[in-house]
Computed example of a mutant assay.
Amino acid sequence: MDNSRPIGIFDSGYGGLTVFKSIVAKMPHYDYVYLGDNARAPYGNRSFETVHEYTLQCVKWFFEMGCPLVILACNTASAKALRTIQQQDLPDIDPAKRVLGVIRPTAEIIGDYTKTRSIGVLGTRGTVTSGSYEIEINKFFPDVKVHSMGCPMWVPLIENGEYASIGADYFVEKYLDELMTSAPDIDTILLACTHYPLLMDKIRKFLPAHVQVVAQGGIVADSLSTYLDKHTEMEQRLTKSSGVRFFTTDDTSDFDRHGSAFFGRNVQSEKVHLK
């Protein structure tokens, strides 16, 4: 992939691989580079300033790798860093490059899923504290009530490979019970963390049958495809040889083992040292 101009996919760890999986399935012909900042994960409880600093470092690395377009497949980074990067950093770095997130495309359509006009949003503390989903959903669906719940134990469980264990049931049921007790009219729950699809079976197990659960992978993939259709100048810059490379800031063997579960097929990563 030397001299390639791939699409960059970023996450603080493994979660973005669930979004990446959907993007590659929909648009397999493009070249891609994935980076997981596992050495500094999770981002969920870090300050806005720290998340911006870490995310910007990673975005600059993608640009050095030749990526003209970077997708922050991380809700925390999208909530705490994206706007600053788009408005303050990109104009100085390279106005022709683009950085997109996962919150806006999700907010644009999530209101179409609910009949009761009441939605639950499950995410990290960072995403929930930012209020980003309430703000963005209200722009498109002002009649929809958004009930957010932070699930601080879910990412550690998933990143440590415990998402299928019986022990995870307690924390899945705990947060869902709190959410549904606070807002019984919820009929749609958005998984506003890209890790959470690995808990999908358990989440459905502890919810009433009429409550639908929405993951972001397909939504983000559809949105990216539409974006490239509309922005032909960007689409034409991207190389198309179906190349995929994985990078991590931490141990590659750990990334490959856990990442394969998220991505749905074998992953072979390379280690990168961020400057």
Rank of each mutant, 00 (worst) to 15 (best):
S118Y: 00
Q212D: 09
K26R: 12
Y133E: 09
I103C: 03
D229N: 14
Q88S: 04
P197W: 07
P197D: 06
T239W: 06
V102R: 06
Y14T: 10
Y227N: 02
S78C: 13
I85D: 06
K240T: 03
G259S: 01
F62C: 08
N138D: 15
P142N: 06
E235K: 13
N45A: 15
L190M: 10
Y133P: 09
V59W: 00
I103H: 01
T232F: 15
C74V: 09
N138Q: 14
T76K: 09
C151E: 06
P184Y: 09
K202C: 08
R257D: 10
F206N: 02
T55Y: 05
F247Y: 14
C193Y: 00
W61V: 05
Y170S: 15
G259V: 02
T188A: 13
L179F: 07
V70C: 11
A39C: 02
F48G: 09
P208C: 07
Y32P: 00
F246W: 13
L56P: 04
G217H: 10
I189G: 01
A192L: 11
I137P: 00
I103E: 02
L157A: 12
K240A: 02
L274P: 13
E134R: 04
Q236V: 14
A39D: 12
Q87P: 04
S78P: 10
V24P: 06
A81D: 05
P142A: 11
D201C: 06
Y113M: 15
T252I: 15
M149T: 11
I109K: 08
Y196E: 13
Q216R: 01
V267Y: 05
V102Q: 01
K21E: 09
T226I: 14
T106A: 13
L157W: 02
V144K: 02
E64F: 03
A168P: 10
S118M: 09
L176N: 03
T252L: 09
A39S: 11
D143R: 12
T129E: 15
V19A: 13
I158S: 01
I119S: 07
E108W: 02
F262R: 09
S242G: 07
R204M: 14
I166K: 14
D229Q: 15
G150D: 10
P6E: 11
P28N: 11
L224V: 06
V213T: 08
P105V: 12
I71N: 00
A183V: 01
K139S: 02
L228G: 02
V19F: 08
T106R: 03
L228M: 06
R257A: 14
Y43L: 03
V99Q: 08
I166V: 15
V51A: 07
H195E: 01
A164Y: 11
L90N: 00
R40E: 12
I85F: 08
S132A: 15
F247G: 00
E173M: 13
L274D: 03
A261S: 14
L199C: 05
E136S: 10
K145T: 13
E159Y: 04
W154Q: 04
A81M: 14
G161A: 06
S78V: 12
D251R: 15
V51K: 02
P91L: 07
L69T: 01
R237H: 13
K139E: 01
F262Y: 15
M1H: 07
